[in-house]
Design a protein around this nucleic acid. Structure first.
Lengths: 115, 115
DNA sequence: AGGTAGTGCAACTCATTGGTTGCACAATAG
DNA sequence: CTATTGTGCAACCAATGAGTTGCACTACCT
């Protein structure tokens, strides 16, 4: 859990991100179907779908002789969590710097105590 | 704006993501400094920093003879926005499917009309 | 059964990229 | 001034990855 490594890797490719959007907009689709919407071969799409599925972002569902790929709910949150962590920690740093400029990383807390 | 392409590309690499975290935790650092925290050469770190900076995630700041790299606030939001859009649209789809099951993408509305 | 639409697997090409090493240049410390 | 520390640039290497083509297989339809 909270292992966004594969998620970020999977979302690195623009085509893959577009596939995600298509699936989000249009619901589960097959590789052949998606291939019709992109300027690449079906096999290329299959590879992308495999990558996305392996990252836990999609799930395969056999429907007769077709195979539909649909988004796995919530999996994108792993990436969002990472972004939130980094972004928020940074914001806290900035706020601390503004509040009382103490750029020393060793003492992040506002220390008002005297001996 | 809202062009997360470069951001996702930049965040694809694990080392780059770790660099982002280090900068978030420890504040602006130089390439040489960061290189000491990773099992790669300084030049490799420089390349990563360039990639991140080119994506708008970092900014360079010359400090005497050193060059410090620090996070650009808010830039991560572009990625978050994308994730939110895709995730939310999907959730809405799922909710609609649960509410009244009409898996036909062509007719998303509940059609009660007779001829 | 035979045709057809859809999937799966494999081999191959080409570009990208993360990483390295080597050296030159700039700025501070003695 | 000289030595040192830090940065910048360039060439090079190996691995990954996106994309292709070709063919075999499986399930539906008539």
């Amino acid at each position: 859990m909270a292992d966004p490594d594969e998620v970020f890797e999977a979302l690195a490719d623009a085509t893959r991100r577009q596939i995600m959007r298509r699936l989000s907009d249009q619901g589960p689709l097959s590789a052949t179907d998606l291939a019709g919407q992109f300027p690449v071969s079906r096999q290329a799409v299959v590879k992308h779908l495999s990558t996305l599925a392996h990252a836990g972002l999609l799930h395969r569902e056999r429907q007769g002789r077709e195979v539909l790929y649909g988004l796995v709910p919530g999996r994108l949150n792993d990436a969002t969590t990472w972004l939130d962590e980094v972004g928020r920690t940074w914001d806290r740093r900035l706020a601390a710097l503004v509040g009382h400029f103490s750029p020393d990383p060793q003492r992040p807390g506002p220390d008002q105590e005297g001996p």
